[in-house]
C-alpha cells in the first residue's frame, strides 16, 4: 500500500482502495487523503489535478460496505462533518434533516445521545448515509452499501436510494446484479484484462449505458455473459 502514498493514483490502485477495506487499509487511506493537491490519472491520462482533499470529502459523500459509524453518539456522528467544516445554521436542524433524509429519524429521535454502535447493522448503515448527507455533498459514493445487511435492511437502503436520487447523484459499486438492475438509471460494467506478457491485470470499462439497455440488449458480449450469469 506504500504506492498509495504517492500523489498520483492510477486506476488499478483506485480499484484496490475500493475493495475490502480493513483497518490497516483505512489507515493507509487516511494517509492518502492527508496528501494535499492530489492528482488522479486513469490509463495515464490525468482525470483530476490539484484536488483539495478536504473538498473531495465534502463534495463526495462516501458510504462503505461495512457500516462504520464513529464510536460516538448518534447525534455526534451526524454533527461531526458540519462541525469540522464550520457549516452555518442550526446544528440540531441539520442533524434532524439528515436523519429524516436517511429514513432513520423515527427510529432514533428519542435516543440521539445513545451510542451509534448500539444500532442494528441496517440502522448503522443508514446513519452513515445520514452522516454523508449532513455535509450536503454533490455526489454520494456507495461501495457495496447493502452486502453486509439482511434482506429487509437491504430493501430499506434501496428504497432510500430511489428517494435520494431525486436530489443527489449516487454512484454505487455492487457485485449484486439484481441490485444494480433495480436501483440504477445508468450502469457501468467493469472487468479486468490480463496482460499477455504477464505483467499484470488492468481494470477496464467494458460497457456503460442506460440500465434498461444493459439488462435487455447489452452491446458487448462480455456484458451479456455477465448479466445472464454465464460468466464470473
Amino acid at each position: 500500500m506504500t504506492q498509495m502514498e504517492a500523489p498520483r493514483i492510477d486506476s488499478s490502485r483506485i480499484a484496490e482502495v475500493s475493495h475490502g477495506l480493513d483497518r490497516s487499509e483505512v489507515e493507509s487511506r487516511e494517509r492518502v487523503f492527508s496528501v494535499r493537491d492530489l492528482s488522479v490519472a486513469y490509463h495515464g491520462n490525468v482525470a483530476l489535478e490539484n484536488v483539495e482533499l478536504v473538498e473531495i470529502r465534502r463534495r463526495i459523500g462516501m458510504v462503505f460496505q461495512k457500516p462504520n459509524p464513529f464510536p460516538k453518539s448518534i447525534y455526534d456522528n451526524i454533527a461531526f462533518g458540519p462541525r469540522v467544516l464550520g457549516m452555518k445554521g442550526s446544528l440540531d436542524e441539520r442533524v434532524e434533516q439528515a436523519l429524516h433524509q436517511a429514513a432513520l429519524w423515527d427510529e432514533v429521535k428519542d435516543r440521539l445521545k445513545d451510542g451509534a454502535l448500539g444500532l442494528s447493522g441496517g440502522q448503522q448503515q443508514r446513519l452513515c448515509i445520514a452522516r454523508a448527507l449532513a455535509v450536503e455533498p454533490d455526489v454520494i459514493l456507495m461501495d457495496e452499501p447493502a452486502s453486509a445487511l439482511d434482506p429487509i435492511s437491504t430493501t430499506r437502503i434501496e428504497d432510500l436510494m430511489h428517494e435520494l436520487k431525486r436530489d443527489y447523484t449516487i454512484v454505487i459499486v455492487t457485485h449484486n446484479m439484481q441490485q444494480a438492475a433495480r436501483v440504477a438509471d445508468m450502469t457501468a460494467f467493469f472487468s479486468v484484462d490480463v496482460e499477455e506478457d504477464g505483467s499484470g491485470r488492468r481494470g477496464i470499462l467494458v460497457e456503460y449505458d442506460a440500465t434498461t439497455k444493459i439488462f435487455t440488449t447489452p452491446s458487448d458480449k462480455r456484458t451479456e455473459d455477465y448479466v445472464t450469469g454465464r460468466f464470473g
Partner: peptide
Amino acid sequence: IELVLARQT
C-alpha cells in the same frame, strides 16, 4: 413489462 422482468425479477 420487459423492463420490469429484466430489472425487478
